[in-house]
Design a protein around this nucleic acid. Sequence first.
DNA 1: TATAGTGTTATAGTTAGCTATAACACTATA
DNA 2: TATAGTGTTATAGCTAACTATAACACTATA
Lengths: 123, 123
Amino acid sequence: MNYSDLKPIYLQIVDTICEQVLNGTLQSGQRIPSVREMAITMQVNPNTLIRSYSYLEEQGIITMSRGVGYFLSQDAIKKVISIKKQSFLKQELPNIFKTMDLLEMDIKELTQLYKQRSDYEKK
Amino acid sequence: MNYSDLKPIYLQIVDTICEQVLNGTLQSGQRIPSVREMAITMQVNPNTLIRSYSYLEEQGIITMSRGVGYFLSQDAIKKVISIKKQSFLKQELPNIFKTMDLLEMDIKELTQLYKQRSDYEKK
DNA sequence: TATAGTGTTATAGTTAGCTATAACACTATA
DNA sequence: TATAGTGTTATAGCTAACTATAACACTATA
């Protein structure tokens, strides 16, 4: 993991896990790696990882059985998508459009950039 | 000012000042409010504000004369635009496109959202 | 040259985030 | 029931960001 400075590590881990839910690395309903395991994978202190897991639990994306482990909710994918979509539409998008205004960049230019990157970045 | 948690206040202030450069509230070559004044305006400690000003100075957007004050560089607007553009293209845009993939949102949908908000948000 | 207005630095204290380390509590199971 | 693997909590210490407050240094100017 490459952690950036501007976002707390525990939230960056949340993002990583959400991605893994969406891309199928982690499967709905299944158990996810234990706190200690994941802490090692993410090269992070167990306490920090618990923050990530607790956060995901609050959001209803994972659930916990004491002494057993954490599990993805049945509708984990739905939840992740709905949360991501919400924050994209309400928080990120307004900022993006604002920046575009400042840079005097119109939607046409953005479309070009989108298509360009599709040529080589997309799977 | 409404400060968010995820970005240091001094950087949020940097953003605010950059905006004011671009929208003409602050004029190229002119003096900008003193550390103390701006600290009050931004409802922030002078030390914090010095961080913002120092950061802007490093970027070449403002310059300092001891005992006199801070001034916008002659080419402040150019510098702000070039820095913003750089970070938009290299940092933000890739993330935006990535999120769009995750949400299975295509450029068409984004264009619609862009045009919608134009109807009521834009000046 | 005194002074008001600049920027600057220092001290001390708070908080959030993170770390290392250790101990504790619960559960499944051999 | 012992034990290995879960999650949990606690202690102590670090750093970055921020705050309050005060003192210091430089510059323009009355």
